[in-house]
């Protein structure tokens, strides 16, 4: 008597719906135009280039503040996603009922340190984050962003977060 696995489409649909709700819940992510690609549990932040992201009009280069924000957004979404994963996979988290008001609270940033390795070119940028510690109260996340070449990141960062208080 084994439980039949859920159909793949059901699993995919639920994961995509939770991710979409998570991202849609943060107006600033929409302001910057950031989206997320998903492969299983692996997320890639995508920042499509637009002129309003420029910080240095002469080069031109992406604004350092945009780069920092892109890294921070990717780090928080990755951390929140990892916190929601078990609840989502078990089916306890219902994506249909997820609105900005009912979404679980996101971790709060305590500190964020960015190294700028190269100037951000006027092209799309990508970022991936890795949760290096996820405790009951604090978490640490590493994140890096690249453009044309995955092996040549243009910025990397480390974020420290305080975990959301579970309200239930």
């Amino acid at each position: 008597m084994s439980r039949r696995p859920e159909p793949v489409q059901v699993v995919k649909q639920r994961r995509d719906a939770v991710l979409a709700a998570l991202v849609a819940g943060v107006p600033y992510i929409g302001f910057l135009g950031i989206g997320f690609d998903r492969r299983g549990d692996e997320l890639t932040g995508v920042l499509p280039f637009t002129d309003s992201l420029i910080g240095n009009p002469i080069l031109p280069a992406i604004h350092g503040g945009v780069t920092a924000a892109f890294l921070e957004v990717t780090a928080i979404i990755e951390l929140s996603w990892s916190l929601l994963w078990d609840e989502m996979e078990s089916g306890r988290l219902d994506p249909a009922g997820l609105t900005p008001e009912t979404l679980p609270r996101l971790p709060k940033t305590i500190g964020f340190t960015v190294d700028y390795l190269r100037s951000g070119l006027p092209r799309d940028a990508y970022a991936r984050a890795r949760v290096t510690r996820s405790g009951r109260r604090y978490a640490s996340v590493q994140v890096e962003a690249w453009q044309d070449n995955r092996a040549r990141p243009f910025a990397q960062a480390n974020g420290r977060f305080v975990m959301p208080v579970h309200e239930r």
């Binding site: 943060v26 604004h63 503040g65 920092a68 892109f70 921070e72 960015v114």
Partner: peptide, 13 residues
Amino acid sequence: VIHGGAVSALMDT
């Protein structure tokens, strides 16, 4: 509350 990223952009500028 304003996103930390927007505060970062202000600080960097």
